[in-house]
Simulated assay, not measured.
Amino acid sequence: MTPPVLDALEAPLPTAHVDLVARAPAVVRAVWPQVLFFGLLVLAWEAMARALRSPLVPDTLAVFRALAGITENAFAFSEIGVTFGRMVLGFLLALLVALPVGIGSALSRTAARFIEPGLVLGLTVPGLVWALLCVIWFGVSLWTPVISVALGVLPSLVIAVQQGVRSLDVETLEMARVFRLKRSAVLRRIWLPLLYSFLVSGCRVGFSIAWKVIVLVEIFGMSNGVGYQLNSQFGTQNVEGVIAWTLAFWVAMLGVEHGVFHPLEKHANRWKRGHADEH
């Protein structure tokens, strides 16, 4: 008779434990490069602070104390939420304009040539210019950050839509005409799935642009938000506070990147993996 201890050792592991063991290496492989980057960044900053011994370069302990100070009572989260809300509204406004403009300019060479100078202008004008103009035009109102963000990200979204439309195979459209699909079906079955993946990529680029624009708007013309808090810390020459607010928003942006854009990109590109698996 086999001892009970040996029977227990030879018994198969529960499914939950097997899944946990199988997933652990993948999780570690996905996380360790980012942990390593953060660790090296902290070590490099601490070494620089100790070498310079300047109040303008605080050590990591002072920075983390300032970070803990702004995160208690969820103050930092509320301010970041205000900034994100303005960015999202600006994105939606830009998207409403980018879809028809991008599709029309991709299908018509005349339209493409017509909007080309505007795209070049939008890509070259600094976000500071949009921030200053919108503060002058709209003052302290919700329209100021929303329109500033929309103007800043609109060129990248238009280009993303253009690339998506131009990547469509002509044979697919011919097939839709042969089967006499309704325009709503063509839009739902062909155009939107195709533009989806390109828009996700365009939004990732546009989100980083929007952050630079919204901070400038909040510095010059708003009474709350991350940009306003950065300006307040700068006014008192509080370097730890400036770095702490920057780190807080950086962490929030990492959350958006991994919690929103990565899943969306994975979902948008699922057809590519399916095509690769077939081969």
Rank of each mutant, 00 (worst) to 15 (best):
V242F: 06
L20P: 04
H262S: 05
L121M: 13
W137S: 10
L99E: 08
L121Q: 05
E116D: 14
A62T: 13
N238R: 03
L168F: 01
L107N: 05
R177E: 13
V140H: 03
L89V: 15
L13I: 04
G152T: 15
E265M: 14
I219W: 13
G202V: 00
P145R: 07
A248E: 07
A11N: 07
H267N: 03
A210V: 01
L6T: 11
V18L: 13
W45A: 08
M1H: 10
P12Q: 11
G118I: 02
H262G: 00
L121A: 15
F91T: 10
N269D: 10
A98N: 10
L89Y: 12
A160L: 02
E79N: 15
S105I: 00
F138W: 13
L142V: 14
T60Q: 03
L192V: 13
P55I: 08
H275M: 09
E257F: 07
Q162E: 04
S184I: 10
R166H: 00
Q162N: 08
M1R: 07
Q237C: 02
F77C: 06
Q163E: 14
V57N: 08
W245R: 06
V88C: 07
H275I: 06
V63Y: 03
A16V: 11
F114V: 12
V161S: 05
L195K: 01
L181Y: 08
G225D: 11
S232C: 11
R23V: 02
